[in-house]
């Protein structure tokens, strides 16, 4: 059980470091890092949501960035209309109130995930991977075609989003803590969900879907629900990202972004919730820092990824796990 404690220590330490980061950055007179790490926390949320379907549900989706992008666009479009004082589709006014825009982003992303899941989850194996990828491309090109919102070039909007009259997203530190709070909330809620009856059903489907059906679970609806929830959380991350950047463009849902998310989840350790947080941190720091040494870092990183897959599948957080808690080899 010592190893289990080690894991708890690790999680608490990591979260504490994230909590203290803005103060440290201020003291070190490097406020630049606050924005950098806010971005990391946002992607950590997206990676957690992917891990729900990938690590816990065993569904290899190669289109998760689409839901992230949809969430971002909901916020971007509503902010844009609020700033321009125009109506969305000539019907709905825009909004800058995150109590409206963020839940709406979640809702739209979840609904899209529900629809896409409805078709995709009828298939399995390679078909599922290819279909999620193809749907993500469809969404990508949909936003490319939206010339009213910048098309390919994306859309910049005034970034003075105010959180419930309390927190201004222009305020670097306040916004950082808002994102941190969302991350902590997502972590806690997902942890509860994973240990709930629903969570066990999802993990049972990963282990042996045929068995699940044979003991009486209509597995499709549970997997669809999981896919939808994951899409919604990814949408929330996208909403935060839009507020973070004050800019949206289709490139945030390019299929390679979906690939990056998978890399984050696996590198950090899938099938744990803190793993994706670690993975997102390491991946994005690498992406930021390695180009200082060589601009050609992908030529090294690509083969490293291959080696990780071949030899270190448990991921960084996986090394901290006690052996009996690791997934047995199939």
């Amino acid at each position: 059980m010592a190893a289990l404690d080690r894991r708890h220590v690790f999680v608490v330490t990591l979260l504490a470091l994230f909590a203290l980061l803005p103060i440290a950055a201020q003291l070190a007179d490097q406020p630049f890092y606050i924005g950098q790490f806010r971005r990391i926390l946002i992607f950590a949320i997206a990676a957690i949501s992917l891990d729900l379907i990938l690590g816990y549900g065993g569904m290899v989706s190669l289109g998760h960035a689409a839901f992230f992008g949809i969430g971002a666009y909901v916020v971007g479009i509503l902010n844009h209309h609020a700033a321009e004082e125009t109506l969305f589709l000539g019907l709905l006014p825009g909004s800058r109130n995150v109590l409206i825009t963020w839940p709406l982003a979640m809702l739209v992303a979840a609904a899209s995930a529900g629809l896409i899941g409805l078709v995709s989850l009828r298939t399995s194996g390679i078909y599922f991977i290819m279909i999620t990828l193809a749907f993500a491309q469809m969404v990508y090109f949909f936003f490319v075609s939206l010339s009213a919102y910048g098309g390919d070039d994306g859309l910049r909007f005034p970034g003075d989003t105010v959180i419930a009259g309390l927190i201004d997203t222009q305020d670097d530190i306040a916004f950082y803590y808002a994102v941190f709070a969302v991350l902590a909330g997502v972590l806690y809620l997902c942890q509860r969900m994973i240990e709930s009856r629903f969570g066990l059903v999802i993990q049972g489907c990963r282990e042996n879907e045929r068995r699940m059906q044979a003991i009486g679970f209509p597995t499709f609806r549970y997997r669809l629900a999981c896919f939808t929830i994951a899409g919604g959380i990814a949408g929330l991350a996208g909403a935060l990202f839009a507020a973070h950047e004050s800019y949206i463009s289709p490139s945030i849902m390019h299929w390679t972004r979906s690939g990056d998310l998978i890399v984050m989840v696996v590198m950090g350790g899938m099938g744990s919730l803190i793993g994706p947080v670690v993975g997102a941190t390491v991946f994005l720091l690498m992406e930021k820092l390695l180009p200082d040494y060589t601009e050609h870092w992908p030529v090294v990183f690509g083969p490293v990824l291959l080696l990780i897959v071949l030899f270190a599948k448990r991921g960084i957080f996986g090394w901290l796990r006690p052996r009996e808690h690791r997934r047995a080899a199939p």
Binding site: R192, M193, E195, S196, R197, F198, G199, L200, V201, G204, M212, I215, G216, F217, Y222, A225
Partner: peptide, 17 residues
């Protein structure tokens, strides 16, 4: 898990199973 399959639906997200 097999018991759970026959104990109502499993859209229960909160209580620890």
């Amino acid at each position: 898990m097999a018991i759970q399959a026959h104990d109502g639906h499993s859209f229960r997200f909160w209580a620890r199973a």
